[in-house]
């Protein structure tokens, strides 16, 4: 079974903050430096980060990530939320640290 962004809330307990276009999740990237994410995240990755600003939305769009998961209860600012809604970017939030949140999804991908 393939994991889609619409299943993330149920499978991993993340909260959906912005509902964008449904995407298939094909990998995971975890990290907060935008240029690293930009250069190394792959198309279809779920991106785990604490950066909830408008630049994260731009990076996710340009690198073709499937979604952003904001960890450690990091705040999604209003401009970023607005931009994500305009561009159909899926954003989730969780109080889990980045490793735990990434593992929660990785374990599901591995099983399947």
């Amino acid at each position: 079974m393939t994991i889609k962004t619409t299943q993330l809330a149920e499978l991993c307990g993340f909260t959906q903050a912005v509902e964008g276009d449904e995407r298939e999740i094909t990998g995971i990237f975890t990290g907060d430096l935008l240029s690293w994410a930009m250069g190394r995240a792959k198309e279809g990755d779920a991106w785990f980060t604490v950066m909830g600003n408008v630049n994260s939305v731009a990076v996710s769009t340009l690198a073709d990530c499937a979604c952003i998961i904001l960890c450690h209860s990091a705040v999604l600012d209003d401009t970023a939320k607005q931009r994500a809604e305009q561009q159909g970017v899926n954003i989730f939030t969780t109080d889990m640290p980045e490793f735990e949140a990434s593992y929660a999804l990785a374990s599901k991908i591995k099983k399947e």
Binding site: L33, S35, W36, M51, N55
Partner: peptide, 16 residues
């Protein structure tokens, strides 16, 4: 603090 400044800008431009 915005997540930039990692020293990857020009290297990424060249890489891609």
């Amino acid at each position: 603090s915005l997540g930039f400044g990692a020293g990857m800008g020009l290297p990424n431009m060249k890489k891609y």
